[in-house]
Design a protein around this nucleic acid. Structure first.
Length: 511
RNA sequence: CGGGGCGUAGCUCAGCCUGGCUAGAGCGCCUGGUUUGGGACCAGGAGGCCGAAGGUUCAAAUCCUUUCGCCCCGACCA
């Protein structure tokens, strides 16, 4: 058992922090609420970016970059938008530091304070109003990868930090229908990505008015369920209607010769997805990474005593590597600058995923724990006994299972297939968990009982209403996570008012 | 911003109540040796403005005042 990780059953929050620390994904920064994303954590983000960016391009979007600083006046142009973000804005008010008797003090106050972007609807709206003149300029489909800042009261690594990395897509369309299509298309992209790449099963649905994005007409989301039974919003897609077009004057001359407002959307996912990945899959031994975002797909642990054994083991590992990555990569790796004790070999040139061999002067047991805690999907054990059998021992991170693999079985395709199987197994496991932790409630009391006993998702008939939702939240900490697209097609009694309703919602306690 | 707790080695903490030897332990780190198929052992070593400032005292990690920071619980939230 891992000695540096608190078991989930004892303290889930501490477990989460311990896993991150043990896997060296992130560290606290000198500034409260901010985090340092370390190389192995950032590699996961790079994998997310690579995969999502391809999906965005495939759906016709292009990348651009808009500035970090936003004039304060921009934020006030959309009434709901200000209200939603005003409380958590960081504001730049000065442009230099001056030497005074008491040390350095901010000097040269700005005429208009600048906001560090909490999101970019406003700047982008201002630019779109200049770029959009005619229906021929539409649709405008732009995405940006950037950081944003929301001054949160309480923060948690990856799940909620003052500064975080994300992607925000912003589109403008000729018609309401087209904007709605785009909003749902991108939600589908997110859902497919979550399942295909992160192995996280998600529920697609709409937010209630109480939970929607400030300034949106409708917010759609994908919701996932973590192992402690709490829900986590993993991505949102907003149909902004003409709200921002009106606030920022995004107008175009239509096919009908009429000047009209454009219809806009925005959608985003953040580094929170890394938190979702950790909490969905990891176990008491540490991180478990879905194979498609794991920086290392396999770690090879050599076992030897004498120098002579070391040499035979090394020769055998070279053979295994040749089968997996090819002779050219083996030679290239030998010339590469880097950490000699843990040389790495590119397994997949498009994703940059690697295989690492651990030649450090440590005991094999230490190395096993080391790579296990980092979530590496596979470990290969290669010792004299294995060399004699022309085979190695394959250990699977997901279920800690062992198998013997002969040298002639090992190939790039073989490992790819192993990784795919792991991905599928992880997704299945998470789906089963989600299904088991989703319960139906026919009354409010029943829902409260379920939440108290199990947490998880509670599915029930409900008539969304801001005041009632606030009361429920206060009462049992649960919120409507979404109105799932999948509806039973029948009616039932709203658990709170008893009125007949045709809407089922998912309640849960959320992060 | 309210309620609670904590600042001593890289990490986890003891010491403080009842002031006094050179400020400690475990883990981690470095060196050497024996080891090595799931977290080894022995020996040696590096590492501290005891959060900061002021005060009381012959003497402060310890007592007093002020201050800064962090963590937990709530309101807010991708």
């Amino acid at each position: 058992m891992a000695k540096n990780i608190k078991p989930r059953s004892q303290d889930y929050a501490q477990w989460y922090l311990d896993v991150i620390k043990a896997a060296q994904l992130a560290d606290y920064s000198p500034v409260r609420g901010c985090m340092v994303i370390r190389p192995e954590g950032y590699a996961i983000w790079e994998a997310i970016q690579r995969d999502l960016d391809r999906r965005f391009k495939e759906t016709g979007h292009v990348n651009a970059y808009f500035p970090l600083l936003i004039p304060q006046s921009f934020l006030t142009k959309e009434a709901e938008h200000v209200e939603g973000f005003a409380m958590e804005c960081a504001i730049v008010t000065h442009s230099k530091l001056e030497k005074t008797a008491d040390g350095l003090k901010p000097g040269n106050p700005l005429e208009e304070p600048l906001i560090i972007r909490p999101t970019s609807e406003t700047v982008i709206g201002a630019m779109y109003s200049q770029w959009v003149q005619s229906y021929r300029d539409l649709p405008l489909l732009i995405n940006q990868w950037c950081n944003v800042m929301r001054w949160e009261m309480r923060t948690r690594l990856f799940l909620r930090t003052a500064e975080f990395l994300w992607q925000e897509g912003h589109t403008a369309h000729e018609t309401a229908e087209e904007a709605q299509e785009e909003t749902l298309r991108m939600l589908d992209v997110y859902a497919a990505f979550a399942e295909d790449t992160l192995a996280i099963p998600v529920i697609k649905g709409a937010k209630t008015d109480a939970e929607k994005f400030p300034g949106a007409v409708t917010t759609y989301c994908i919701e996932a369920l973590m192992q402690d039974g709490k829900a986590l919003q993993c991505g949102t897609s907003h149909n902004l209607g003409q709200n921002f077009a009106k606030a920022f004057d995004i107008k175009f001359l239509g096919r009908d010769q009429q000047l009209q407002y454009a219809w806009t959307t925005s959608w985003g996912v953040s580094t929170r997805l890394i938190g979702a990945t950790i909490m969905t899959h990891s176990d008491d031994e540490g991180l478990v990474l879905p194979p498609r975002v794991a920086p290392f797909v396999a770690a090879i642990v050599p076992i030897f005593k004498s120098e002579e054994e070391r040499n035979t083991v090394r020769a055998f590992i070279d053979k295994v590597l040749t089968s997996l990555v090819g002779a050219d990569e083996l030679a290239a790796a030998a010339r590469r600058f880097g950490y000699n004790e843990t040389p790495t070999y590119f397994f997949d040139s498009t994703t940059g995923q690697r295989i690492v061999v651990d030649w450090r002067d440590a005991r094999p047991g230490d190395k096993q724990y080391h790579w296990e805690q980092r979530g590496v999907p596979f470990r290969f054990e290669v010792g004299p006994r294995d060399v004699a059998n022309n085979a190695f021992v394959l250990k699977r991170r997901l279920d800690r299972s062992k198998a013997v693999v002969t040298l002639d079985q090992a190939s790039r395709e073989w490992l790819r297939q192993q990784l795919d199987e792991v991905h599928k197994a992880m997704l299945d496991k998470a789906r089963q968990f989600q299904a088991a932790e989703t319960r139906e409630a026919a009354s409010y009391d029943e829902m409260k009982k379920i939440l108290a006993e199990h947490a998880g998702f509670v599915r029930c008939f409900f008539k969304p209403d801001k005041t009632i939702e606030a009361r429920i939240k206060e009462d049992c900490k649960a919120t409507v996570r979404c109105v799932p697209f999948e509806q039973p097609g029948t009616t039932g009694k709203c658990i709170f008012t008893g009125e007949e309703s045709n809407t089922q919602v998912l309640f849960a306690q959320a992060y």
